[in-house]
Simulated scan of single mutants.
Amino acid sequence: MSVTKIAIMGVGKIARDQHIPAIAARDDFELAATVSGSGGVDGIENHDTLADLLDARPDISAIAMTMPPMPRFDAARRAIAAGRHVMLEKPPGATTSEVRQLIDMARAAGVTLHGTWHSRHADAVASVRQWLATRTITGGHILWKENVREWHPGQQWIWQPGGMGVFDTGINALSILTEILPVDLRVRTSVLSFPANRDAPIAADLVFAGPDGVTITADMDWRYADTARWEQTIKTEDGTVKLLEGGARWTLDGVKQKAEGPGEYPGVYARFAELLSRGESDVDDRPLRHVADAFLLAKHISVDPFHDDA
């Protein structure tokens, strides 16, 4: 079995909690280095900059980029130009134009580009997609609510332009929605709530339109003080499917169904390994396009200022 030496760029919570354990669990990847200006991982070679890594380690053929989306384009562009395969944490870029350019660059360079959507690998998602494939969709609703102070403490970048605010997690719901539905949707209306002291929304109310009058609504809110709710309900002519816990389990007409999946980040790396073996890329920008459309169509509402320590 060939082993791909991979580096992680951006050693934050998501890298430590998800990427590093997922890599360690596989025989076909070796975490060979990190890129972090604030310290790397114990026992793993660290470089302060991507340029240092690219110069020092030509044997590292793949880089997982787990830093915030704003600096990701320049880093991915440099890595692709150096002939390295690139994995992008969600979202794949700060703008849709950046993503399209990276796709073209990777194709021209002959390297693999994988824009990951980890929630698509949650245990129940594949089963729901299969069940819905032959059904007629009649409507649905997304409920995506959590406490931002619990799940994103002190992360100031999420409130800056390009940080996406509530869509940083809400886009996970959209990644699942675009994966499981057999029809395409478009954003019809959008209401975004912006804290008076922030540049990104803390809540979003969306209406999606599909074929034959199908409507799916979405309620996303970072001010939810109770236990997080990550749920999607899809109604069909044959019954109602509900995805719970971010796609970890599902019900059909209220009855619990069997859910068997690889787990989110094990699934991400299994897919990356598959793409590398085939010399292919996989970058689906539909969830990001939905977010961009939500901003384009948005009615802006100013709400109370947000403070991390409130």
Rank of each mutant, 00 (worst) to 15 (best):
L185Y: 01
K90A: 06
S175I: 00
T95V: 06
T215N: 03
T240W: 00
M164E: 09
E264P: 05
M9T: 02
I202R: 06
D282I: 01
K299N: 13
A200V: 05
W230H: 06
F73R: 13
R26Y: 06
A126F: 07
M87G: 13
L50R: 01
G39P: 04
A133V: 05
P21L: 09
V303K: 07
G239S: 10
V111T: 15
T227C: 04
L275T: 02
L132E: 08
D293Q: 15
I137E: 02
D212P: 01
I301W: 04
S36R: 09
A292D: 15
R271A: 05
L132K: 11
T233V: 15
D52E: 15
A51K: 14
G213M: 09
G115C: 07
M164Y: 15
I63M: 01
F272W: 09
Q156N: 14
T112K: 00
V86I: 15
H47V: 08
F167T: 05
P21W: 13
A75N: 10
S175G: 14
V41S: 02
Q160R: 15
I8F: 03
G263R: 06
W222V: 06
A75E: 10
K256E: 15
K145D: 09
T95S: 12
F272P: 00
D27F: 07
V3M: 10
D304G: 04
T251V: 15
E98L: 14
T49I: 09
A22D: 00
R77I: 02
Q257W: 10
T134Y: 01
V86P: 00
R16G: 08
D253S: 08
D74N: 14
G263M: 10
V41E: 09
K235R: 09
K242S: 13
P91R: 01
R72F: 05
K13F: 13
W250V: 02
D48K: 14
A56P: 06
P68E: 14
G12R: 02
L296S: 15
S281M: 12
V166F: 03
G247A: 04
D52A: 14
A270M: 10
N147V: 11
L185F: 02
P71I: 04
P262R: 12
T233G: 05
F208C: 12
S2H: 11
W230N: 05
L296N: 14
L174P: 00
W144S: 04
L276P: 03
T240S: 09
Q257V: 13
R286W: 04
R286V: 10
